[in-house]
Design a protein around this nucleic acid. Structure first.
Lengths: 215, 215
DNA sequence: GTTTGTTGTGAATTAAACTTCACAGGTTGA
DNA sequence: TCAACCTGTGAAGTTTAATTCACAACAAAC
């Protein structure tokens, strides 16, 4: 777990770094929003801990930029105790949580841990989705279905079945179900099968792989 | 099967087009090497039939260009009867076969059919290779092995086994064998496993897919 | 209103992928 | 030389994926 601490107050910054190091986290720090963005460009952090109030680029601006370019790193904002609206603002802009100054070390660590758990959980879910997608495109039949849907647009069950030259339609139903569970294809209310948003991305990948593998 | 006939002699050209159409092939024609390249750019041909001797861009030049930009379309050259060295030249430059002028229609068709059979065979083999590759990357374990080899360079069996946290090394052997059969990884004479040329391409694909699927 | 075609479900079977186990040759180091 | 480790094979067992079959709801066509 790599954590970046961003604060213009050198004393607080190094204090937080010490605490987190003691807990076994890998840390780095930045004294401004600009420096933080540069460090995030160079390496990948799991969590960024950022002060809301900073000179020049405000924490909120840096937050927006971060979420735009590194959607997978979580941001925790440090706000002044009084300003609830700042905290709400931060959440709206994509912060995972906020900590009000002054805070107890225990509360601080609890927040960090919770966000880490959330991150881990999200990653597990994404891994599962990925596994499904890779499995879905592992079968030649399913790849055929996908390229068909890509070339000819949405199709009905029996159209697909006949185009594939398969006699038993339940076999096709089986494969369509797998593609649907992987959210690669979807069915409209008239039961027509078509590529989903993720499906178009998958097709893109497929095309690239075929091209690369065929030469 | 789409065939492109390239010849500056309009009479011979339309004669060949007629013969091939009668045989049920889809045809198109061009009167110069330049025109042929343009047509190949716009659409994909399975076979290009090209006269060796043409004004301006020679058949040989056009052949080279074609092979460079469209390695999957086969080229059959038409040469003058006397010039054996031209035929040899054509083969060296990547032509699949050649036909000496004048020729009998039967011989001509036999050559066309042979090249078509070759193409079909090659495509079947490539399809099989592709299936293997997609299967190989369908397993999370094997994807882990690939990313490990990509990140850390070549590794020995037990290094891989321990890094994966697997107790039974024969399990890893099983997966390595599949990756080896898909020619994604290879073993040097000291039994160290490393990515093959196709392996690097596969990793590239994997990275792209992961990135696309994760967002 | 009966037939024909479409779109499914759920259980049973078959096939393929994966794992585990027993064993064995080869190398290294004490 | 003997013990410890690495690398692997082949068979048996387990699990998962894929196919086939029997059946059914629903719609359209005759």
């Amino acid at each position: 777990m790599k954590i970046l601490i961003v604060d213009d107050d050198a004393e607080l910054r190094s204090h937080l770094v010490d605490i987190l190091n003691e807990e076994g986290y890998e840390t780095d720090f930045a004294s401004s929003g600009k420096e933080a963005l540069e460090k995030c460009q160079a390496q990948t952090f799991d969590i960024v801990l950022m002060d809301f109030m900073m000179p020049k680029m405000s924490g909120n601006e840096a937050l927006k930029e971060l979420r735009k370019h590194h959607p997978r790193t979580k941001v925790i904002m440090i706000t002044a105790f009084a300003s609830v609206e700042n905290a709400v603002d931060a959440i709206k802009n994509g912060a995972s949580d906020y900590i009000s100054k002054p805070f107890k070390i225990d509360d601080f660590l609890t927040t960090i841990r919770r966000v880490i758990e959330e991150t881990k959980f999200e990653n597990r879910v994404k891994k599962l989705d990925q596994d499904k997608a890779f499995n879905a495109i592992a079968s030649p039949i399913r790849r055929n279905i996908l390229t068909m849907l890509s070339d000819s647009g949405p199709m009905r069950l029996m159209e697909i079945t006949r185009e594939l030259g398969i006699e038993d339609h339940t076999k096709v139903v089986f494969h369509l179900k797998i593609l649907k569970e992987a959210t690669i294809i979807e069915q409209d209310n008239e039961r027509v099968y078509g590529l989903s948003e993720a499906g178009y991305k998958t097709i893109e990948c497929l095309k690239k792989m075929e091209q690369i593998l065929l030469d």
